[in-house]
């Protein structure tokens, strides 16, 4: 693919105290492309997602947005570029209702006074809100009273509401039902076809296989391979995730550590 990537990461590092969560991570995502980010639990996927969305800025490394270096220090920086996200922990305000959550940070207001009717109308027009949960949440229901699936639906709707150029999805189907997950994948394909760049983090390799064009594997915070999804057998991706390609000794030591943790 010759086009400039919407987002390119070079040498991204992130450290939490003694834990080196990301080391020299490279990644490219193009418009109209779904890139799956896969890796074992604790591999650093969410950390990388947060580095992109500004929720947890990277310590080192270069982030290029449409070919130009960009500085993402706060969530607002990423939003201004056109990046939206569904976080693994959803990041919804439980005490607010669905409409308030959908528009938080981007309220429709006139002279500082909220236009509730306009916001509610937009919310009611959101097709995925009705499609992605078994029982569509009431737009005026408080998030605290919603089921896990309904919350996930709200988080997804909030992310696509801003019509982002890059959509970062961290385990977006974790709480969805089987049928709803299927509809969600349809939605992802539609967004991709309309030119959105999508980064999909998932443990479900079936989902990855179904919609992703590329898969980037993270292992212990480092790149561990890039795959062209349609032409790569699933086993190969799995072995890259679990690291069976590592030599036996390092594998044994990490195994015992993981067992202890």
């Amino acid at each position: 693919m010759a086009s400039t990537p919407v987002l390119a990461l070079h040498g991204v590092c992130k450290r939490f105290g003694a834990v080196q969560a990301l080391t020299d991570v490279e990644l490219e995502i193009r418009a109209g492309e779904v890139v799956a980010l896969v890796g074992d639990s604790g591999a650093g996927k969410s950390t990388l997602a947060k580095a992109i969305t500004g929720a947890g800025p990277a310590d080192e490394g270069v982030i290029e947005w449409q070919g130009r270096p960009a500085s993402i220090q706060r969530p607002r920086d990423a939003q201004d570029l056109g990046i939206a996200a569904v976080y693994q922990d959803l990041a919804l305000c439980e005490n607010l209702d669905v409409v308030a959550n959908l528009f938080l940070g981007h309220e429709i207001a006139r002279a500082g006074v909220l236009d509730e009717i306009a916001m509610e109308r937009h919310a009611l027009e959101l097709e995925p809100l009705a499609l992605l949960s078994k029982e569509p949440p009431s737009v005026r229901g408080v998030v605290a009273s919603l089921s896990a699936g309904q919350r996930q639906t709200v988080a997804i709707c909030r992310a696509i509401l801003s019509r982002p150029e890059l959509l970062v999805l961290d385990e977006p189907t974790a709480a969805l039902g089987v049928e709803q997950s299927g509809r969600f994948l349809d939605l992802v394909e539609r967004l991709r076809d309309s030119g959105t760049a999508i980064m999909l983090i998932s443990h479900n390799l079936g989902d990855v296989k179904a919609v992703a064009d590329q898969a980037a594997v993270l292992r212990h915070g480092r790149n561990n391979g890039f795959f062209d999804v349609p032409s790569t057998p699933q086993e190969q991706i799995v072995s890259s995730i679990t690291g069976v390609t590592d030599n036996a000794v390092t594998q044994r030591t990490t195994k015992t550590w993981e067992d202890m943790l």
């Binding site: 969305t53 929720a55 969530p75 607002r76 939003q79 996200a85 976080y87 959803l90 990041a91 919804l92 305000c93 439980e94 005490n95 607010l96 308030a100 938080l104 940070g105 981007h106 309220e107 909220l114």
Partner: peptide, 18 residues
């Protein structure tokens, strides 16, 4: 709205760009 949001969930509000 942002006072309530921040009081309800500081991190969620921050990530929303508040």
């Amino acid at each position: 709205r942002r006072i309530f949001a921040t009081g309800g969930d500081l991190e969620a509000s921050r990530r929303s760009g508040v």
